[in-house]
């Protein structure tokens, strides 16, 4: 690890000011991804602002009938909350399908959204990667690695977003609340929060420098069934090679793009009376597999159709 200084401010205002004032400063929450990447020197912050003990760890009912998840709620805490389990089972299932019990006890809601890709070439510092070093090139393109994007990839990057939780939040139309040192508060839609790679794959979200996620807000649960299903290379404790979240008529796909992928073509097809398989086929028409990841076409079609059949999405339309 490169040397850094560490500080644990007692309040949000101080934390935001420190992040804005110190070049190279980063917020530290659960640390399960950031500390790991610091060991590999892929992340090299000069200063860590520990926000893990800020009073942002509550789960509150909203007046609209939804829930506000504080940024520092742990993944375990959210998945165990009786309100989440009863009203947002897609979210509980998505969180519980990710990582291990130990990691979920540390990992936070905000940190989960900001985790970096697990692309093998991002982790291999002997190979070029436009995320690690803009302009260096992409070793994953043409490399021997199959867990890459089939939607929205670019010539600069074919990496996928690794989160399960974020896929469920996308299907649920969650909102992200942020604050920055300038005293500005923003609300961002989950669906637009993560970016496609384009020619700047190192810029992964719409979050500005020194801006902090303070909460994730769930709207009231949509009418209809919910489910999260994940395919992976072993039965537990592995990243997805494809996943599907359904919440009512909303569908999101995981491990297929640089961001959680909202399946708008499938949603539209369902509204127009398509069967689950037809709806997924409509979505996958837009996919651009690269030879190594062609398996994802059949996988996502079947996984998505199974989920839509289970929840009965589109049945009443």
């Amino acid at each position: 690890m490169k040397p850094f200084t560490y500080e644990r401010p007692g309040d949000l205002t101080t934390a935001l000011a420190l992040a804005a004032d110190i070049p190279g400063a980063r917020f530290l929450a659960g640390g399960t991804n950031l500390v790991d990447l610091m060991k590999l020197q892929i992340e090299q912050p000069t200063h860590l602002v520990d926000i893990s003990r800020l009073p942002l760890a509550e789960i509150e009912d909203t007046p609209e009938g939804g829930l506000r998840l504080g940024a520092m709620t742990t993944n375990s805490q959210v998945a165990a909350d009786p309100r989440v389990r009863a009203r947002y089972p897609v979210l509980a299932q998505a969180i519980l399908s990710g990582a291990s019990g130990q990691l979920r006890n540390k990992a936070t809601t905000a940190g989960n959204l900001l985790q970096r890709t697990r692309c093998a070439y991002f982790y291999d510092t002997t190979k070029p990667c436009n995320k690690r070093e803009p302009g260096a090139g992409c070793a994953a393109i043409g490399g021997i690695y199959a867990n890459t994007a089939i939607f929205g990839a670019s010539e600069a990057c074919v990496a996928t977003h690794p989160s399960d939780m974020a896929v469920a939040l996308t299907a649920l139309d969650a909102k992200i609340e942020t604050q920055s040192g300038a005293g500005e508060a923003r609300v961002l839609a989950m669906d637009g929060f993560h970016r496609l790679p384009g020619d700047t794959p190192h810029i992964e979200t719409e979050l500005r420098p020194a801006e902090m996620i303070t909460a994730v807000v769930l709207p009231p649960p949509p009418p209809g069934g919910q489910i999260y299903r994940k395919a992976r290379e072993r039965a537990s404790y592995a990243f997805a090679i494809g996943s599907v979240a359904v919440a009512g008529g909303k569908v999101a796909l995981g491990a297929v793009a640089h961001k959680p992928w909202r399946a708008e073509a499938a949603e539209l097809a369902l509204e127009q009376g398509a069967s689950p398989a037809e709806a997924m086929a409509a979505e996958l028409k837009g996919a651009r597999p690269d030879g190594h990841n062609d398996f994802k076409l059949k996988l996502m079609t079947r996984l998505g159709a199974a989920c839509l059949t289970t929840t009965g999405a589109g049945d009443d339309q």
């Binding site: 560490y6 530290l28 640390g31 399960t32 500390v35 790991d36 893990s52 019990g101 990691l103 006890n105």
Partner: peptide, 12 residues
């Protein structure tokens, strides 16, 4: 609560 001690900075 159980955690991975290898991914947690002692100063936290």
């Amino acid at each position: 609560r159980r955690i991975n001690a290898c991914l947690s900075l002692a100063v936290t």
